[in-house]
Design a protein around this nucleic acid. Structure first.
Lengths: 231, 231
DNA sequence: CCAAAAGTGTTGGTTTTACACCCATGG
DNA sequence: CCATGGGTGTAAAACCAACACTTTTGG
């Protein structure tokens, strides 16, 4: 054994054999019929041509949350983002170049957020979950974690606000739940539930689009994350 | 910016400015009227005399899970433990000696597990949550995370099995839920719920202790972690 | 006038909560 | 025979799931 107990940490932090620490960002948004995830195509080895989550190393003076927020800013224009630490992946062999421990974060962002042009023309694209390309490293596993977390969390918090624009229709709201939970929801039951929770309020506006009755627009009463039992 | 995108990792992992990676173990067990947490008293600075979670650095060749399991073995004799990664804490200043990123794990263990005599007479003790000593570093924050996770998780999984001996009474089982959730539960409703879930089965034995009707003993049908909606 | 999506209530079944007394034992 | 904790059922309320038609509009 190597000496248990935090009290046995060296007085000065040593300078070798330490793994590198990266953050990887699972950035999700709503597509038409699917969640979309932002991926970057790798040019060099290993995994050249495969797609990976945006991410990068943690700077010496920044916290993990700050590193994640920075990486997010570098990829998208942010507003009303929901950002949460997901899990830390540290298999010794997950990066063939050397030991890299990755603290994964997931972010839920509003759709119209343009992908920021990579500073070096890296090819960044949104992919629907139903048509993912080959992922680099252990990123397929990481994505599984992220989706499990989001599916669970959407049921007992109000974080859907981060996936919707300022105003939206109840049908659009319902669609978000259906896409993430992967099942149809009864329209009447859904509206009854939502209105009993006081999460949203009508703006008074209508949206008219197409040959049918216009839809009332709603907005979230609060865009702060909050625990609310929804399903 | 420092160069976004995982594809820009250096070909060889560099050897400096990397933080140290530790695991910290929040080891919980059932006490009489409270959850208990295992703590180790620090001798040296910083935080001399304060108490801290057991933990230590991650070895170059081991995964995070392996490091956590090793630290757990070094502190307790293990059997039927539930072990799960909790969260990663990486504030740059959380350890005054230098940057240490701590991947926290929590473990739920059976009570009679003796604390292994520290290899160097470190003072390790169980503390009830209601009477904690001063904690070192950011360990009070970490404990809050752990408790929130355990409280949530106990409601939708069967992980209580890890806190109870092979056989137990329904009253003992109920007590675990009451202590962790911090509220009283109606005995009849609790038994109705538990028996509807098929989590436990009677062994046929009775336990007689004291001047009252003996209690039927039960055991868990399965001691594998499983998702079960309990409350 | 037709097609399309928006909007709206009721009923039956299930689940949850509240609540009080008898049982078996040891001393 | 008494004190102790073990064990059991029922009724009301809340919640959830299933289900179909009318409204408003644009073309």
């Amino acid at each position: 054994m190597t000496g248990a107990g935090i009290e046995q940490r060296p007085t000065q932090v040593q300078r070798h054999h330490y793994p590198a620490i990266a953050v990887d960002m699972i950035i999700l948004t709503m597509g038409e019929n699917d969640l979309m995830v932002l991926l970057i195509q790798r040019r060099g080895e290993p995994f050249a041509g495969h797609w990976a989550f945006p991410g990068g190393f943690v700077d010496p003076a920044e916290s993990l949350d700050e590193a994640a927020a920075r990486e997010l800013r570098e990829e998208t224009t942010v507003s009303d983002v929901y950002l949460e630490q997901l899990y830390t992946f540290g298999e010794p062999t997950r990066d063939p170049r050397g030991r890299v421990i990755s603290v994964a974060y997931f972010a839920l962002v509003r759709q119209p957020l343009a992908v920021v042009g990579g500073d070096d023309a890296t090819d960044a694209r949104w992919f629907p979950l139903s048509a993912l390309p080959a992922l680099a490293f252990d990123h397929a596993t990481i994505l599984d974690y992220a989706l499990a977390r989001v599916r669970k969390k959407i049921e007992y918090t109000n974080i859907v606000y981060s996936l919707l624009p300022e105003t939206f229709t109840l049908t659009e709201l319902q669609r978000v739940y259906e896409v993430i939970l992967g099942r149809r929801i009864d329209k009447r039951n859904f509206r009854k539930k939502i209105s009993s929770l006081d999460l949203v309020a009508p703006t008074g506006e209508l949206r008219r689009d197409g040959a049918h009755r216009p839809a009332k627009l709603y907005h979230f009463r609060s865009r702060e994350p909050r625990i609310v039992e929804i399903f």
